[in-house]
Amino acid sequence: MIRVLVAKPGLDGHDRGAKVIARALRDAGMEVIYTGLHQTPDQIVEAALSEDVDVLAISILSGAHPTLVPRITALLHENGANDILVLLGGIIPDEDVSLMFDAGVHQVFGPGTDTKDIVDYIKEHVKER
């Protein structure tokens, strides 16, 4: 069973996209933990570790990804959780994408992505444990 944490960090108050993703992943047979809006990086990493998820799907539409995402991936790394697949969705400008990869994000999904592509990506890349 693939377990996914869908996380909304920071002050961004829009979670429609996150909820669409959560439903699509559930309909693909995954267990999705949703923790609601306004999560700090510490809260997100604590939830990911406690729930022992395979995938962390972060949604950010506010433009705060250059500060929030590296903080989250650093905390994951500090806790030895390098086996968690980290996905990023929302509004991520093209010029920031490589920055996100450098921070440890495995894949970035922009607006208009077919949810099936996300499901396929997860099924292909999640690690056995």
């Binding site: 069973m1 959560a22 439903r23 992943l25 559930r26 309909d27 693909a28 047979g29 995954m30 267990e31 999705v32 933990i33 949703y34 923790t35 609601g36 809260q43 604590e46 939830a47 406690s50 729930e51």
Partner: peptide, 20 residues
């Protein structure tokens, strides 16, 4: 879900204060 076998687990939303 009886159809897909998946689930949305949302109890954590209301437990944020205690799980911190």
């Amino acid at each position: 879900s009886p159809f897909s076998g998946g689930a949305i687990l949302g109890d954590r939303i209301r437990m944020q204060e205690s799980v911190d």
